[in-house]
Design a protein around this nucleic acid. Structure first.
Lengths: 345, 345
DNA sequence: TTGAAAGCGGTACCAA
DNA sequence: TTGGTACCGCTTTCAA
């Protein structure tokens, strides 16, 4: 790891000349602040003569004037900021792609998307911190926001609150991610393929509990009324952890595993193969999320595909909600989990 | 893909009662706005009686009062916001991890980290958009910011501008990512292993040019003065593209490939193996970034490891720069690329 | 211990 | 066509 050397306090700061305001521009152009505002905002209700416009623009450029967003927001009473709290774990490929699309789509609708990283706050405290920014809409990934938090956000001016989670929250639009359905599909598939002693990987990484718990619960549902059993398998995302699990595999007496997602599945499948366990003969392995990498291993990894909302669709939902804040919160099932059967099961 | 149905404008909005301000709290508590501010900020320069404090807190809670960050910023003349423009491509695992750590570390130093997604703006226009938010510091990933943009940001109050790129920018702190060094190491390794006809994968995805171009250039440097040759290989991140490249592999007459990074390397290696090309006998393959997945394939993937700055170190740099804005901009080489030799070369 | 008031930087109404 | 000015919500002297 590269260390950045700790530079001891260097030469004292030369006082940076203070930042130019619209008053400075007005002074330099020899006009009023009002005129500056009209010119720079192209206010259509007011005609400003061409020479004046030129002088204002010239003065603004000369000073390097940049308007102060906070001042404008304060005066306007609203902003176009859509706030997305950053998730508590580093984003996976699926989520990164989604955020990227969502940002692009909202930008095109002339919103500003901001991912806000405020670790250390929880539940309603977090909601209060978000509310301080007075966003016009908030998109909350994962659980942790309660009805109280939604109320705080709405009271402070948010015209749309959208949750991206397994459970709807009172007062908020909900994009329901059916993680239990993923577990149900995966385990159901394994049972249908004749497997009976099914392991379910549960990542030990703390931020993943919100996904892994419902996936495990779904798997349990799938074996209800069959003679199949579910065994919980804690696993860290390291080769060591996978090797340790693989080493005690024979003693576990399992014939299949639902590995939380494709990444954990790959990790475990490799460790099992290195232990001489044959996939799928000795043990069927299924992942989830249908990542590219699952198609690159041999055998190809069976998986459960889930469809996140497209960034475009979601941006549309947010936009509609913002324009119509009185509307009933909508709930949308964001996907039906579907099994992609390849060679590992 | 799940479609979100387009709800036609539903019931008209019930006017949401306007958001409570500190004046409302003052009125309800029967005190002045000043007192409210003192109480809620625990101002140490002023003693407020316990009964008054209680009344203020009670009133604030009752109204669900949340302070207005923009107003505070405006009055204070500065904020603690560190701005990170979102990169133009979906974040990879390395970058996601880095951002996560960086956010956490800065949060602990009491900064607010904001990732700002403003696609569609370029160069100095983008810098102006960032400057409107009056961040106390800006961390810019990738190129695209010029000296002019740095000046705009500083003029509008940014006390630290840090670039994370291959080239330093006048006036800004620089974390130098030696992508050319990655290419040099990779190609140098292949040459040292006796390979002579070296392909270099160049992703066709547009946002990746900023990395792929210097990596390719580095590879070219490495074969200077040897009898080895470099062949550019465009590749999209799809199985089809990889299969197509693999199909014409024999005609290419290559004996090694540096595949841009581990993900492209995996993709290509698999396609080559499916075509009957033996790795590493017929073709050596090396990736970059040392991702976990490279250790899961067989043969294990050789790679070039690069050390991104740790989030903690970088947060420290930003903090120091903010506290000492007069200091000379520092440049740090963020890593020396090192080859991790495994089984694919 | 508390309150009155100025002012941060824009915007938009009303006059001129 | 342009200027004067009130005001957005909050902090912070200065007085009482």
């Amino acid at each position: 790891m590269v260390q950045i050397p700790n530079t001891p306090a260097p030469t004292p700061s030369s006082a940076p000349r203070s930042v130019p305001t619209s008053a400075d521009v007005a002074r330099l152009a020899g006009v009023s602040r009002a005129t500056v505002s009209y010119v720079l905002n192209n206010t259509s209700a007011v005609r400003i003569s061409e020479p004046t416009r030129r002088r204002v623009h010239q003065a603004a450029k000369e000073l390097g004037y940049v308007p102060h967003a906070a001042a404008r927001t304060l005066r306007a009473g609203h902003s176009r900021m859509v706030l997305m709290p950053a998730p508590p774990v580093p984003a996976g490929p699926l989520y990164s792609q989604f955020v990227h699309d969502f940002q692009g789509a909202l930008s095109r609708l002339d919103y500003i998307v901001v991912q806000y990283g405020a670790s250390g706050l929880h539940g309603d405290d977090a909601a209060r911190a978000w509310a301080e920014l007075r966003p016009v809409a908030v998109l909350v990934p994962g659980p942790g926001l309660g009805p109280e938090g939604v109320a705080v956000l709405k009271r402070s001016g948010a015209r749309a609150v959208v949750t991206l989670s397994s459970e709807p929250v009172e007062g908020a639009h909900a994009l329901l991610l059916d993680h239990a359905g993923v577990g149900r599909s995966a385990a159901g598939h394994l049972v249908a393929r004749g497997r009976r002693r099914i392991g379910v990987v549960v990542p030990v990484e703390p931020g993943l509990k919100m996904f892994s718990v419902p996936r495990l619960a779904g798997a349990r549902q799938a074996v209800q009324g069959t003679d199949a059993t579910i065994t919980e398998l804690p696993l860290a995302y390291t080769e060591e952890s996978a090797a340790a699990l693989a080493a005690r595999w024979p003693g576990l007496g399992l014939d299949a595993v639902f590995a939380y997602n494709d990444e954990y599945a790959m990790l475990l499948m490799r460790a099992l193969q290195d232990e001489g366990v044959r996939i799928p003969e000795d043990a069927a392995v299924i992942g989830a999320d249908d990542l590219m990498l699952g198609r690159l291993l041999r055998p190809r990894l069976s998986t459960v595909r889930i469809a996140l909302p497209s960034g475009r669709d979601l941006a549309g939902l947010v936009d509609r909600a913002v324009r119509n804040p009185g509307a009933q919160p909508e709930s949308h099932e964001m996907f039906e989990a579907t099994v992609v059967h390849r060679d590992s099961t």
